[in-house]
Amino acid sequence: MNPFRILGDLSHLTSILILIHNIKTTRYIEGISFKTQTLYALVFITRYLDLLTFHWVSLYNALMKIFFIVSTAYIVVLLQGSKRTNTIAYNEMLMHDTFKIQHLLIGSALMSVFFHHKFTFLELAWSFSVWLESVAILPQLYMLSKGGKTRSLTVHYIFAMGLYRALYIPNWIWRYSTEDKKLDKIAFFAGLLQTLLYSDFFYIYYTKVIRGKGFKLP
């Protein structure tokens, strides 16, 4: 593994830990898109079905996969749990979470039918998850562009998520040049799309929150 890949994985892991820490320590969940977090849980469950075959790439790979499934599922459970403990915040969160995710699910399913490595259940599920991950941030982006309520989404979470996507690009360039010109085209193009969406996410965050903050301060 090259340094970009390791740092990319670690920043992804960090972003999830930051989000969990935020949800647990602050009462503000309004800025979080429940739909985006649910889509991420679906992404990891459908991508890592290969865990069940026990043809594991490495211990590192298997442990990271288990971490991503468990931690994203935990985020969904935490958000869902706030329905009882913090009803007002929960309703606020859902009220602004109005992006239609059916389109993302259908689009990703179609992309996986057109672009896959093999026409098998595991490979179709893998491709579906890669395409879904590339667009799963859209409900969050949409929510942010409409309301700009981002108290619990800290700069650190977005920075870590953006860093993870950005680092995967030099990782692919590194791998392409060192590993016999091999490149996973599906992961590469879906990854590029995702990185573009993240740069938009950061731009909106910057204009709405960082610059907007100056106006709101008493």
């Binding site: 991508r47 043809h55 790439v57 790979n61 991503f68 490979e123 996973d184």
Partner: peptide
Amino acid sequence: SEEDILHDEL
């Protein structure tokens, strides 16, 4: 038989 595809990235 074809080899299984190894998705080594996360």
